[in-house]
């Protein structure tokens, strides 16, 4: 279960940040998840629910996911295109010399604390 491992990483980072800021309860964690990061958002939130409720700091805390669309850059023609629709080959010029510009993110964006 790939997403569960990621959840443990998130919890570790959130705990650390909460401690640094003297926070006793986090209401929501906002994640930026790239479209081609290999993370299935539903699995991530399911695993989150199971693991977060075991922590005092994160009981009932919601995991909000803000998806980042994947974009590929083509060195052949210098243009950009959506990765998921076209894959590795540039739809503008047919070049294979392409690289992922964004869409691979697994990032904790922010914590929301409500009192």
């Amino acid at each position: 279960m790939h997403e569960l491992g990621i959840v443990f990483y998130i919890i570790r980072d959130v705990k650390k940040a909460a401690q640094e800021h003297g926070v006793e309860h986090v209401s929501a964690v906002v994640m930026n998840i790239g479209e081609v990061s290999t993370i299935v958002p539903e699995y991530l939130t399911d695993c989150w629910r199971w693991a977060a409720d075991k922590e005092e700091l994160l009981r009932g805390c919601e995991l909000k996911i803000e998806p980042i669309p994947a974009v590929t850059h083509c060195d052949g023609c210098g243009k950009e295109y959506p990765t998921v629709a076209h894959g590795k080959i540039c739809p503008h010029c047919g070049s294979e010399k392409t690289w992922l510009l964004r869409g691979n993110e697994v990032e904790i964006k922010e914590l929301i604390i409500e009192n």
Binding site: I6, Y9, I10, R12, D13, A17, A18, H21, V23, S27, E105, V106, E107, I108, K109, E110, L111, I112, I113, E114, N115
Partner: peptide, 17 residues
């Protein structure tokens, strides 16, 4: 009211890397 936002902006893989 009383909502605080702590910005993190950090990859989950950063510590491991």
């Amino acid at each position: 009211e009383n909502v605080k936002i702590i910005e993190i902006k950090k990859s989950v893989f950063e510590n491991n890397d």
